[in-house]
Each structure stands twice: as C-alpha cells, then as structure tokens.
Design a protein around this nucleic acid. Structure first.
Lengths: 214, 214
DNA sequence: ATTTGTGAACCAATTCACAGCG
DNA sequence: CGCTGTGAATTGGTTCACAAAT
C-alpha cells in the first residue's frame, strides 16, 4: 500500500467488493475500469485511482482479473475480516437486523442482542443470546464483540453508545437520531432513513431551481 | 438563496433540522454555531457557512434564534415538505419500515406497500394498502407518490427501480445491494448495513496502521 | 465582548491526459 | 492499439481569520 487512502475511496472499494462477488458469481473473470465504473455509477478514472491505492494489479490489455482484484482488497483492507457484532434495541428494526442473514454470510454475525425491556429478552425467538442493556459493557468485553448496531430510541442512544465504548467496541452503526459523541478509536456511521428522504427530496427541489452544486 | 449549495452542506443542514426540533422541544430558544457544531460533530465554521447558504439569520450577539433558523430551512429548502412515499418489498426490513411511525411524523407517510408475493399482501396486518409488485408504476402515478424505499432482494431491485421511475418517482432510498442505474431527475441514496460495517472495520484497521487519509 | 458572515487560503478529491505496457 | 497507472491540473469543500454588527 503506497499512499494514504481517502475515506470516499474506501467507501467505493467496499461497494466494488460487493460488485466483484456478484460478477464472479455470474462467471465473469475479467473486468475493465470502465465497466466497474458504469456498474457503480462512478467514472473510470476514480475507479483506477481507487484500485491504485492497493498497488498495481491490472493487465494493461485485458483489464482486471476479478479474482486478483478481490485478493488485493482482502490483503490490503482485510475487507472480508470477520468481526463479531451485536445489536442494541430489539424493536422492529432491531429484530429485522437480528434475523438479517447477510450479516453472517459477510462475517459480521451477531453474537448478542440487548434491550432494556426484559420482556423482549424473554419472549423473542432467536438463536442469538439476548441480554439486558445494563450488561452491554460486560458482554461486549467477554464476547470480544467489535461492532455494535444501535437501534434504540434517541433518548437511550447516548447511554448505549457509552456502554459499547466502555466495553471496547471499535465501531458503531447508529440508526438512532442521536449524535454519538466522537471517541478516539471508535468509528461511527449514522444511518437515518428520514434524513435520506429529506436529502433526496431537497436535491430534487434544488435541481429544478438550478441552485444545486454539481 | 445566494449561492449553489454543496451536497455535504445539505446533508448537514438536514441533521441540523433534526437537532433544532429537539432543542426547541427542550425549551431552548437560541443557539450558537459553536453549540450546533458540538452537537453535530462538525466545526463551527462549517455550521456558519452552511447556514449562510440560506441567507443572513443570526443575531451577532446572541447566536441563532431556533425558530428563525427552522423557518429559514423550511423557506429555502422546503425541508418539511410533505411527500407521499411507498415501500417495495415486505420482508422483515420492509415490514419494520412500514410500521416506522416517524415517517408519518416527518411528512413522508407511506401510502402504498408492494411485494411480488401475493401471500404477503394478503396476510400482513396494516392500515397501508398493499399491492402486487407489477402495479408499482400505476399506483405510484395514481397516488402521486414521490418517494420510494427499496427493500427487495438484489435480483429484484433493478426491475423495481425501473417501475418506480416509470411511475414518475423523484427519489429512491435503496436498501438493496443492487446499484440503481442513474436516471435524470431521480435521486438515489443507498443504504447498506454490511457496507457500513465493512467501512467502520477498515477505518479502524487503517487508523492503527496510520495509512488513513485524515 | 461575543458571535456572525464571508472572502481568502488551504487542503482534499476528482478528473484529465498521457506515458507505459502487454 | 486498448487499457492501466499516475503525476498534473482542476474542481470542490473546509478552515482560517477578521470585518461588521450589536
């Protein structure tokens, strides 16, 4: 790895990894930067630049070998590294995530679920062990859980995040409205459906008025 | 509105709107750029720049009036504009979204659900009318639906997106793995939980090796 | 005395354009 | 030739720093 990688490149490389798996499943062996770009909605220059952060791979005549490309992503980014995850909040969203099998297939299997409502812990049918929310720190530590998904109401998010951090988590995907205060060594990604709908809606409005950057 | 607004600014302004509602609910009336920045994990300069795209608002002594600030967001971005939405795919995630009441509170109420499995349409208990997937275009047009949420398996996503576009949708939030091909006037935002976990995981790894940009 | 609003300066990321290689 | 890899140029976004306002 020659240079520091910008975060947008990492995001694109993750999307590319997904795509590579799909193309390989379809029996393809080679792919050009142009093709990758078309699939990902990114221009070919960016694709090549992103890949170049991983070192030289391509065959100048025939494009990239999918197998090699995937190999580079694995070697450089440990992109398929398994990490144990947990879910905090077992409402509708939390339950949907709990049963989301792609997590296991991708190596991010959920090994614990938490909720402050003891009732839920006792009634939900699942193979994943469930615990009360006040045990988050202990269990995260004991079970060597590295990633947490937060699907709790906003008012509970800060406290839950704190417990995850105390337990030594390295990353949080936050579905709640609350903003998780930054903590060194803990990376947070926020997902907010309503926010996304607002953004799309505003982009549409602005594009019509032609006051949109880009 | 004086200038073109960068997309990252729009994203931050949406988060800010969320925060403003919360602060007002807590009885606050004024807020400074520093405070907003601290809550949102953004530096105060960015906050002021973002707000400045909406025109001059602040009182130099006392910061921003929350009421006025919200007003400007509404006037300039129509950030609280109501838009009818629909959900495609009524699996676990689709069902969780179907019952997500914040959508209604935020003005993005779901007015139709779709699934290719007729069984689901007949058995799911909900107030929202459900239709078979092949009626997407017709219903979107008839019900004047502007936003679509895609929660279908990857192999069905392209076809579903096409139907939404045919129906005249203006925005799609895509939870599936498939990449929705861009279409003029249709804005797409992708949400991929596994992708987010991968990103967090890679960021953590790279930060330790110090080969991360920023 | 603070806190905004904003041009200017800086930094990051994307795009260009072309050399190099099979 | 076609396609990659990459410095250079460009664009875009963030941060700085200070004038203006009260």
């Amino acid at each position: 790895m020659n240079k520091k990688i910008p975060i947008p490149s990492i995001e694109r490389l993750c999307a590319m990894y997904q795509l590579i798996e799909l193309l390989e499943k379809n029996g393809m062996e080679k792919v050009s930067s142009t093709e990758l770009g078309r699939h990902l909605g990114v221009n070919a220059n960016s694709i090549r630049k992103d890949i170049s952060y991983l070192g030289e791979i391509g065959n100048c005549r025939a494009g990239y070998s999918l197998r090699k490309l995937r190999g580079y992503l694995i070697d450089n980014l440990e992109i398929n590294r398994k990490r144990r995850s947990c879910i905090i909040g077992l409402g509708r969203l939390g339950n949907a995530i709990l049963e989301y099998d792609r997590l296991f297939q991708s190596g991010f299997g959920i090994v614990a679920g938490f909720d402050s409502n003891i009732n839920k812990i006792e009634t939900i049918q699942t193979n994943v062990p469930l615990y009360p929310a006040n045990e988050i720190s202990i269990i995260v530590k004991r079970e060597k859980i590295e990633l947490g998904m937060l699907a709790v109401p906003a008012h509970a998010a800060t406290e839950s995040a704190k417990r995850l951090v105390d337990g030594g988590i390295i990353g949080i995907v936050n579905f709640s409205l609350a903003v998780i205060q930054p903590h060194p060594g803990v990376f947070v990604r926020n997902i907010d459906l309503v926010g996304e709908l607002r953004i799309v809606s505003i982009l549409s409005m602005l594009s019509k008025e032609n006051i949109l950057q880009t």
